[in-house]
Simulated assay, not measured.
Amino acid sequence: MKTTRFAATGAAAALCLLLSCPSITEAQIRTSPIVKPVTIKRDDRNKSNLAKEDGAIYLDGLLNQEVIVKITKPAPAYTNLTGQRWIGTVHGNQKAVLLAVSDKAYRVRARAQQGQIAGWISKAAVEGLNDQFEENLKKFYERHVLVEDLISKEQVAMGMTVNEVMESIGEPSKRSTKVDKEGRKDILEYITYDRIPQTTIARDRFGQPFQTVTYIEVETGRVKIEFENDMVSSIEESEGTDFGKGGVRIVPPPIFLF
């Protein structure tokens, strides 16, 4: 039995030599290539390949939850607001997801005869939205544009929420919260530092003097942001900081659609 096993091993080794097979040692140390994950930039997350209609408000990336509506009757669906391309007829008496809003029509995702489709349909075929929804959505979108601009410039404005401020300038150095009968109050405090070099004389083990440089952190500025009911109510800055970039801006208070 041993002779047979050794013969088989020898034959396998000879075959590997003929075919230039890697040795056992090489096979053990050879590793698979590391595939790095693709990082999606923040600015790219809300982008879509969808050709958007001028003047329409698209809900994807704007709201953090789906808006469910009811389609009351069959309605033809089109790829754009001009009705140049018909893509099917959505069934009546079904729930659908609202995707975009324009003055002329709603873009929905709903079931049609050929399956689920997304297209623009008549507003007359849609129910389930309150009378103030479109007006409030426009205000919500306008505020969203203002806040996104402030965040991109790392600025703070009166009327921003706690989460919006932290998204703009980061986590605070200190945070405190107080809740009483008048409501909720939050305070975020940001402290900026600078590293200052200091030169000192030290001696080595032979007693010879030499210079060493150490860095100490020195506070250069402080910003205190107060919130009342989750909205910036005051901004207090010391010298060396300018989160308002030269002036205090004001954004409308948050709009609640639901």
Rank of each mutant, 00 (worst) to 15 (best):
Q211I: 12
D242Y: 03
R203V: 12
A8L: 10
K95G: 12
I169T: 03
I201Y: 04
T214Q: 15
E219T: 15
A77V: 07
N80A: 13
E228K: 13
P197C: 11
L63C: 04
N46R: 05
T4W: 03
E127N: 13
A14C: 10
E66W: 02
I34H: 03
G128N: 12
D131H: 12
A100L: 05
F243E: 05
S233Y: 13
V251W: 05
T9D: 11
P172W: 02
V232G: 04
G83Q: 04
N130L: 07
T72C: 00
D204T: 04
G170F: 04
D54C: 02
K178P: 00
L98Y: 10
T161Y: 03
V126N: 06
D103F: 06
I196L: 08
I57A: 03
Q208T: 12
N229K: 01
A56L: 06
Q208V: 07
K2S: 02
E219L: 06
M160K: 13
A56R: 06
W120L: 12
Q114D: 14
E148P: 15
I87E: 07
I255Q: 03
A11K: 14
Q208P: 00
M1S: 07
V248T: 10
T212A: 14
K245W: 04
V101L: 09
F227R: 05
I169Q: 01
D103G: 10
E148G: 14
A105L: 10
R203D: 03
D54T: 06
K70M: 08
S176C: 03
K224D: 12
I225M: 10
K70S: 10
S176R: 05
A27G: 08
K185T: 06
L17H: 02
E182P: 01
D103Q: 14
P74H: 01
G246E: 03
G92L: 07
A51P: 01
A112E: 06
Q211N: 15
R205F: 00
I169G: 02
K245E: 00
